[in-house]
Design a protein around this nucleic acid. Structure first.
Lengths: 198, 198
DNA sequence: CCGGCTATGTGATAAATATCAAAAAACGAG
DNA sequence: CTCGTTTTTTGATATTTATCACATAGCCGG
């Protein structure tokens, strides 16, 4: 299914977000604009499928994405990306290899597909550009770090409590079925934790 | 216990490694050299303790380090750093906050303590410097990503097999006691997995 | 508003892993 | 080499979590 392309103009809202990461000049914005593409995903639509190359970084303007690994038919959710956050499949993106991980919209979502990596070496590129990419990469990896620490440092019950306190938007917006594997347990166990059986 | 400072001259070996990450000019090397300090750690000596600020990035010239979290007296090992690898406590380093994680030498180790972050804004600093820091950060975070994927994608037995195949140096050099929490299980269970009880 | 689909909850049971205790093996200092 | 310490192994048991089966609730499209 092809994405529905609604616009290629960088909105002022997005510009504001980008500005907090790096200060591009107006010339630079004009230069990179063609490499930004906004797509609208329907609920459950796949943005990136396992096995594909991942040549873009994604920015969620509205909606939620999930990055998941298909473990013989059983999904393992690795991360969720909300409004105003970036995501990509770092390993696939950096090493230019097929992704083992897929990205799917959990709700109707507006997502910017940012393909600026490959202009880094072209004539007319500028130093800011690769700095920008590295900063995004650090943000994305940093989110993984946080999840990694949560998984390693706590028992399942404590992980749920941690999310309740530190990431309430996850608990509220992500269906239990998807949250469970993110916490590292089954749906049934999460359901029982939630109703205070433990 | 104070570290024994053996040298502050960047060796040609280290220069070679740095060169693969960023090309500093000779002038730039001279400028950053005072911010490199080599320390020799005895076996089991602590390099960074929970609660301290982490203002450096570390490079292991020889030996092995472990990054671990003290979960009420019970260690959880988050990563091991071997020769020619970098490490730091990313969250503490970037946010300049006390570290929840400690770093300890598992063997006698020679480690470079690199404190270049805080010269980034000084007079005389150069663009390369912050690029260098970000590249190191990405390397360190990338290693966490790999571990995160291993933990999330596999059962304990498969995680052990994964390490056997992909990271044999871990299995060979890291004592079982420390490996266990890294794999996310107890010593006893790892011992049984190793002797093929499962 | 209805019917079908999907998500969540619950109970019974099985499987995996932790815990505790103690023996065996490996290691290291002198 | 030897003694004492630390690490690893092993066994018995307890606990946690998964699995399976099914009931219930919530949701969406017509």
């Amino acid at each position: 299914m092809r994405h529905f392309k609604t616009s290629c103009m960088i909105t002022s809202k997005l510009k504001g977000i980008l500005h907090n990461i790096i200060q591009f000049s107006e010339d630079e914005y004009e230069f990179i604009e063609p490499y930004f593409e906004k797509v609208v995903l329907k609920k459950n639509q796949i943005l990136l499928e396992e096995g594909q190359l991942c040549n873009a970084v994604f920015f969620v303007e509205s909606g939620v994405l999930r990055n998941y690994y298909d473990n013989n038919g059983l999904d393992v959710n690795l991360s969720f990306t909300f409004e105003n956050q970036f995501t990509t499949i770092i390993e696939a993106y950096i090493n230019r290899e097929p992704s083992k991980i897929s990205i799917q919209a959990l709700e109707k979502s507006e997502v910017w597909t940012i393909r600026i990596r490959d202009i880094s070496k072209e004539k007319g590129s500028f130093a800011n550009l690769s700095t920008f990419i590295r900063r995004i990469a650090i943000r994305v990896l940093f989110a993984t770090e946080e999840h990694h620490n949560m998984i390693m440092m706590n028992s399942p019950v404590d992980r749920y409590r941690y999310l309740l306190e530190k990431k309430p938007e996850l608990i509220q917006r992500i269906p239990l079925t998807h949250l469970a594997s993110y916490i590292g347990i089954t749906r049934e166990t999460l359901s029982r934790i939630r109703s205070n059986k433990y």
